[in-house]
Amino acid sequence: MKRLDKIHSILSQALKPISIKITDDSDLHVGHAEASGAGETHFRLEIISEEFTNKTRVDRERLIHSLLADEFAAGLHSISIKASSPNDN
């Protein structure tokens, strides 16, 4: 399974998002020290979920990082995150 699909399924299951959008930005980071050239290293995520209600930005990202720990261990280098709750002002 492609990493993008894997990330999508892990986050969808755990966070039941109202909306989720993931983009593979790896091409933008070619030549970067950590980009192996094989791709699937850099992603961008926009996600809206009730799970983020009353959580700080740091806690929201930590939650996502922890869900993706295996992917980080397997070569995911960075995921740029915009995590919102439907209850944010």
């Binding site: 930005r57 740091v58 990202e61 930590r62 990082h65 720990a69 980080f72 280098h77 960075s78 995921i79 740029s80 995150i81 915009k82």
Partner: peptide
């Protein structure tokens, strides 16, 4: 800080966040 990416910013000893935050 149990935070898997760099950059990381600390203010007065406290972790504030990475680039997105």
């Amino acid at each position: 800080s149990n935070w898997p990416t760099i950059p990381q910013l600390y203010v007065k000893g406290e972790f504030v966040g990475g680039c997105d935050i």
